[in-house]
């Protein structure tokens, strides 16, 4: 059964059409990497999947919800769809633990003590069990990003979306964040990863989708897509990305 079903969606910003008819489906437990040049619409696609952007045409079903822009229905959808951004977006006035506890307490109505246990469990998962009381500005970028991942996980989402979560990080810090994501993949989480880490995509993603100019230009099982790209555009994209 597919957890994500996207049917021919289109998205315009004014006169600029950014998504020009994208269809895809993602099965439970599948890990999909989304690659493509800057401006090809990867972030926009991801943001459409949790309703941060409103689509102009097409249909989205995700984690058992039909995409709706009714506030309550959208909130219900978002409870089941975790998203992590490039910029972490931790709440600066809350400690790591409080960042994670906020949504379980306010949205899921967990008690403080239940939420605390859950937050601690999620911090342990990303290897930050001892940083519960640290404020974001006391953490490195990699640690902040792992807290952001833990914050999403605490809502026990059905799907996780990652948008270039390592591109603001140094190579060493990138590794620790990728390791946390790889652990999640190993546990069977359904995920879409927008990434510029081609080797990581190839290793972790079951399937890779190459986007170009707002459409899916080529896709396939990661191994064969990276080994034998079919289109010349993907070949030159991969050459440029891997050549660096």
């Amino acid at each position: 059964m597919s957890v994500i079903q996207v049917e021919n969606i289109r998205k315009r910003f004014g006169s600029l059409e950014v998504l020009k008819g994208v269809s895809m489906s993602v099965e439970a437990g599948e890990v999909v990497a989304l690659i493509g040049r800057s401006g090809s619409g990867k972030s926009t696609l991801l943001r459409c999947l949790n309703g941060l952007e409103m689509i102009d045409e097409g249909a989205i079903a995700i984690a058992g919800h039909r995409m709706s822009y009714n506030a309550a229905e959208l909130r219900a959808l978002r409870r089941d769809v975790g998203i992590v951004f490039q910029g972490y977006n931790l709440f600066p006035h809350l400690t790591a633990g409080e960042n994670i506890m906020l949504a379980p307490v306010q949205v899921k109505r967990l008690s403080k003590s239940e939420a605390r246990i859950e937050a601690q469990r999620c911090l342990d998962l990303v290897g930050l069990g001892d940083r519960f009381d640290s404020y974001p500005d006391m953490l490195s970028g990699g640690q902040q990003q792992r807290v952001a991942i833990a914050r999403s996980l605490a809502m026990q989402p059905v799907v996780m979306l990652f948008d270039e979560v390592t591109s603001a990080l140094d190579p060493e810090l990138t590794e620790e964040v990728l390791a946390a994501i790889e652990d999640l993949a190993a546990q069977g989480m359904t995920m879409i990863l927008v990434t510029h880490e081609m080797r990581f995509a190839r290793r972790v993603a079951d399937r890779t989708i190459y986007m170009r100019d707002g459409i899916i230009h080529e896709q396939g099982p990661s191994d064969s897509l990276f080994a034998e790209p079919q289109t010349s555009e993907l070949r030159s994209f991969l050459k440029a990305e891997l050549g660096q």
């Binding site: 949790n50 941060l52 506030a71 909130r75 219900a76 978002r78 409870r79 769809v81 975790g82 998203i83 951004f85 910029g87 977006n89 931790l90 709440f91 906020l102 949504a103 306010q106 949205v107 914050r151 999403s152 809502m155």
Partner: peptide, 21 residues
């Protein structure tokens, strides 16, 4: 605005986002 997006992505209402974030 990214703070608001983060809060709403976690399922917080607009009121909760204002109050807590």
């Amino acid at each position: 605005p990214s703070q608001i997006e983060a809060a709403e992505s976690l399922g917080l209402t607009r009121g909760q986002t204002m109050r807590f974030v």
